[in-house]
Design a binder for these strands. Structure first.
Lengths: 338, 338
DNA sequence: TACTTTTGCTTAAACGTTTAAGCAAATATA
DNA sequence: TATATTTGCTTAAACGTTTAAGCAAAAGTA
């Protein structure tokens, strides 16, 4: 029963060489003979040597851990983003620590503290809806480690950002609806204080104007975009004396709520009201009728965010600066807008 | 510009005391005067001292990190389990590292290696569907750190396990369907090699027998329980000359697939065929008709798994042994079986 | 007063690894 | 053959923290 785990010293003792030589042999240092390397690796395997990550991280001042902050892992978008990130970072020798804020600012701050405390080499984050105070993110920057934002970001932080073109997505949606003959297009959006939702609203307004339709403020709604919000706001829209003939909802969850209310009121979708969501969650293709939605290229976002991080660690001299990488989103047309 | 982060030494220098005293002051050691403690904490705040977790973990031989292995974060069950775990463990001073296997055995092994390498103090895991070879889990045990399994576990490992009573859940479902007058109840289940799915199948068979209904092998199907599997197997059941009047599907995703096929074939649910799923995923209440399902008490499972881990670290002398904690699952009755 | 105990610190080693510096032997170069 | 270079290691310090052991001063006790 070897209570203690085997260390580099143990291997050194067996072979009567110094721990330094063992360390170098394990790292394939050119100054160690092939013979010694082979012997070290053989003994390491025999003694079931497992390197102590804490010790090496401490010595090297680098943990090879990347912290990830997301609002919720429980959404297809984020889990897919994270999956890609992990693939890219693992390949480069990094492991990731996933934390979720549950859309709570307080939890988000705690998570950031945890990650910094765990000595991560960088943080890749998407902000909670609640987040307006950026001091915790400044803390990351002050720490000197790279910070990469995706999806829900902030220009003011002057860091790398990866996301889709929300403004343009709204244009694509509005123009698709107009091409189907819609004249009164409502928008159930998020709160303007969140950059991405603000961009969707602006895109919506500009696209409506561009196509010479009137802007009707009663058709523009801000909410938290939960399923319940979708139900509530759709019910509200149905009570207007001049109903919309299309609704563009800035989240699939809220779009689903809206669809439920439409179904319950026996309003035919798409014939009477066309509906479009945002995010391309799997359930959009599963419900009846299936919901048209915007695909956010989650895999690309995950991959690019990870690659951006790697670029930053490779070139630490490069000062952090606003560096936006914007992908074109894709409208997936389904039954709800056909 | 202080390039370097402040350490305990820096604080010691400012106050002209030893680093040891600073460390003790920060940990509220009783042998340090209140005056010194106050001074240390003041200076620590002034210099924005952040403890180096790697150093303390190395010295103490304890990382205060718990590894979590799940098949997919992208499911309501697992994300909810993890959320509760995190809450309990954070309170006890632990942080968690979430890894997902994507139902791949190979990825699961990699994840376990990563976690061991990161020097976690314990691992809480739910196995991938593929996993039959348990050698990697033996590796965790050999490492001497606690291993807790939940939902998808294995008796052979002789470790703590938290899950629901799958066998009994099948009884509850079958009896509910019989009470609605069903006589030919089909079961689209998982593969028997996975313990929980085997239990569901056994529960189904025993419940059918107990209620003096015939066992019809053509009504018992094993599959991977994806949405596609649900579609395929439901289509298959519809082609039987003697159709079932109820289908109990061992996963909500497969149940959804089944429902789609029923809807497409204009078969009235629940009038012609009643349908019940498993897992109580949020979408079960969102689709039309809403799907009856089993709630797995994800919050309780997460909480209890975390508490079990904490018990293990508190009493390391206690030998690991098979310790099953089984919760009663709850049938949520919705339109698909009313 | 003379002792024991308590208080409040210090010293020094340790955790396991990496790495700069150094040195002897082997090999290459002139 | 004498000198320079390369090879293959060793030594020792360092990363930042914790902690056992120890010690002087202060406080308590007889």
């Amino acid at each position: 029963m070897n209570k203690k785990r085997t260390t580099i010293k143990d291997i050194a003792n067996v072979l009567n060489i110094s721990p330094a030589a063992v360390s170098k042999a394990l790292h394939d240092d050119s100054r160690i003979s092939l013979k010694t390397k082979a012997a070290v690796k053989r003994v390491a395997k025999e003694l079931n040597y497992q390197p102590n990550h804490l010790a090496s991280a401490l010595r090297r001042g680098k943990s090879n851990l990347v912290g990830v902050v997301v609002p919720k892992t429980n959404s297809n978008f984020f889990s897919s983003v994270v999956e890609q990130m992990e693939a890219v970072l693992n390949k480069a020798g990094y492991n990731i620590i996933i934390t979720q804020s549950n859309e709570s600012f307080e939890k988000e701050c705690k998570n950031i503290d945890t990650l910094l405390y765990t000595q991560v080499d960088g943080i890749i984050a998407s902000m909670a809806n609640e987040t307006v105070d950026l001091s915790y993110y400044e803390k990351i920057k002050a720490n000197g480690i790279p910070l990469i934002l995706f999806d829900r970001g902030e220009n003011d932080l002057n860091v790398d950002y990866v996301g889709i073109d929300d403004y343009n997505s709204s244009h694509v949606i509005v123009e698709h609806l107009i091409s189907k003959g819609c004249k009164r297009i409502a928008h159930i959006g998020g709160y303007r204080r969140t950059r991405i939702f603000n961009n969707r609203i602006k895109g919506y307004i500009d696209a409506i104007s561009k196509n010479n339709l009137p802007i009707d403020d009663s058709l523009i709604i801000e909410s938290s975009l939960t399923l319940e919000d979708g139900r509530k706001e759709m019910a509200h829209l149905l009570q207007l004396e001049n109903r919309p003939d299309a609704v563009y909802v800035a989240s699939d969850y809220a779009a689903l709520g809206a669809l439920q209310v439409l179904n319950e009121n026996n309003i035919k979708v798409p014939e009477e009201i066309r509906l479009i969501g945002f995010g391309n969650e799997p359930f959009t293709s599963l419900v009846t009728p299936s919901i048209s939605s915007i695909d956010q290229h989650s895999k690309d976002i995950g991959r690019i965010a990870a690659e951006t991080f790697l670029k930053r660690v490779e070139e630490p001299k490069l000062k952090q600066s606003l560096n936006k990488i914007i992908l074109n989103a894709e409208l997936i047309i389904r039954d709800s807008s056909k």
